[in-house]
Amino acid sequence: MDQWAVKQDGNKPNLIRKPSKQHIREEWVGRVYTALCILFLIVTIIAIVYFVASRGLSTFIKNGVSIGDLLTGLKWAPEGEPALFGALPFIFGSFSTSLLAALIAAPLGCCAAIFMTQIMPGAGRRYMQPVIELLAGIPSVVYGFVGLSVIVPMLRNIFPGQGIGLAAGALVLSVMILPTITTIATDALAALPSGLKEGSFALGATRWQTIYRIVLPTTLPALLTGVVLGMSRAFGEALAVQMVIGNAPHIPRSLFESTSTLTSVITLSMGNTITGSAHNNALWSLALILLAMTFIFVFIVRFLERRNKR
């Protein structure tokens, strides 16, 4: 396009071949501006990954901790003599809290979505969905506070132990990720072509048969996407979990025993370490594990979405 403007003989009037100066300028301004924005994003992401990776990997390179020891070691004593960096309790804590939270929240969220889209679509989408989305806007410190003053005493009264621990963390997280799962499930169910449901009704299937034989199987990949996104939110949540989980650095023997997650140990210890020290680097290694897990969650979601499109 541009070379036409260059080759253009100025004397010949040619209305369609020579783009006006204004169009070229607009085109370039738009192109440069959007390119700068994406460049900024890419640079930021690469910088974060590089920073976390370089700090996180120096535990293994500079401080001589083996990757195996970090991933499978049971004892975390970074200031001890000798210093031990076994992060398995935190990895276990993060996985178990987010998995339990997803196990609690997935059926609740999906069933709520079924009610809002299939049983009372009018009022459901108009009133109930905004209310559930409101849950997503509550700050995590509020969740932690409520968990500490309601869930923890309740667990203490019913079950043996202090109340704080794995179960409390999972319960708080399950409420936190409920809106994510419900919203995505609701959108997926509402986007189901109405012809499929009618086709099932027309064959004499009841509403429940239609829901569990047609609606749910067809939307399953999208529902799973919601659950995985909820899990990744639970995995990354630090504050609310830290307030109710107890923060003991070992693998709990029951649901009601104190434990830690990757995020809670980072937020608790980060301020008390010296940059460049073995302890500080070890925390970066934990952050690196979190980052890697987030990537894995994103890949799972991508994979499910691709399957959904088929």
Binding site: G195, L196, L203, G204
Partner: peptide, 17 residues
């Protein structure tokens, strides 16, 4: 449910499951 078993229906847009 029994009624719709007696009276089948086909739509404008094919809607296979």
């Amino acid at each position: 449910v029994l009624l719709r078993q007696q009276i089948g229906m086909v739509w404008q847009r094919p809607n296979p499951f």
